[in-house]
Design a protein around this nucleic acid. Sequence first.
DNA 1: GTCGGCTGACTGACTGTTCAGTCTAAAGAC
DNA 2: GTCTTTAGACTGAACAGTCAGTCAGCCGAC
Lengths: 221, 221
Amino acid sequence: MAAPSTNRVEPVGAPDVRREQMLEAAAAVMGERGFSETRIADVARRCDASPALVIYYFGTKDRLLTEALRWSEDRFYALCTAALGALPTARERLELLVHRTCVPDGAGEVPGWGLWFDLWAQALRHQEVAKDRIALDERWRRTIVDVVAHGQDTGELGDVDAKDFAVTFAALIDGLSIQVALVDPEVDPDRAFRIAMGFASDALGVDWRVPAKKRRSSSGR
Amino acid sequence: MAAPSTNRVEPVGAPDVRREQMLEAAAAVMGERGFSETRIADVARRCDASPALVIYYFGTKDRLLTEALRWSEDRFYALCTAALGALPTARERLELLVHRTCVPDGAGEVPGWGLWFDLWAQALRHQEVAKDRIALDERWRRTIVDVVAHGQDTGELGDVDAKDFAVTFAALIDGLSIQVALVDPEVDPDRAFRIAMGFASDALGVDWRVPAKKRRSSSGR
DNA sequence: GTCGGCTGACTGACTGTTCAGTCTAAAGAC
DNA sequence: GTCTTTAGACTGAACAGTCAGTCAGCCGAC
């Protein structure tokens, strides 16, 4: 394209687009290689730019990676909330949340688990990332609370403390996701799903148990 | 520095001792700085050796860090099992396990959480570390199973599937620990402890609930 | 004397960042 | 309509710092 002179594959596009491309590329590379193994050159190659241009846009590598982390979080959250709205029952909504997290690495357009591990590791040592991570988890729990509250409004769920449930449920899902992401022989996605929904059943006083060995490649709706 | 002869603080000691010192130093630095921010020079300084000596002992940086990771895991496990043996009841034992994990970073001689995050991140991308991590978690769950089985033998606990409980409980503790390690405003150590023991109470059919606001700086024995 | 633990000085590779300048397209000037 | 100017996206080529790993040799103990 852009025939005569340059031989760019893409028309390059507006600065905003370029920026987004770079963030996406950075998030992707970070997911594959890991935070600190990510080179500016990798990101640049991936979005068809020069390393200098990446610096031109973000100033420093650190800023690029930090922003990419945030961008990825936002994207994950946006995708989740959008998908949630399309589901009618609390049960389906909770199932969706579990699916979105307890997924083997690399599946779907969701940022891989590598990013989460790195996010935690970075949050432990960098103030700014720590703040982001707290906000992200708060949002995540609020999402769970909203799902439960909605279920209570429709009468699907009885009276439980949605906030308490959210804290525990979020922690449980995190823990299960780790096992799934690391391909633990004891905890495959199916089992993780059943454990999570089993806990939700008990805690919320409903019967959402999934019969073992029944489910299969149930891509959330 | 390097006055007349040597001004070593320690008599340096046998090679085995030296090796162990290096592993401990490496684990400590990794916990502080993170896996990939750990420099051989840092480790060397910490155990009062030259960078060249560290390479002399371990060949490559990679080998050093991998071994340090394993060493740290083993140490954590050894400390835990030793402490467990000193406690009579299943309740006290489970409480100990929760304490050992849901602790703010840096407290105690237990390897900090930074190491765990890095372990996960590395396991995601390196076969060898992945194997170690699976073995570690398997050991961890077996520890929980043993505690439960012991409680069932003494009649303290009723009939539950210890393995199922272990998988869920381990995941829950992991998730809670992350929040505690990252100083989440919503999940302090105290709350994490209560949530974990509350879950155990329900799952095991006993009443181990800890009344809120009661506990304080309870350094596990 | 020799052997193994140990070291300082060095190197080679890598990589974030800078910089001087190119190319493009839009905005004015005429 | 054509020429000039300007802004800003973009780049290749260096630069400078960092570090893992090498090497030739020291030194004390057996």
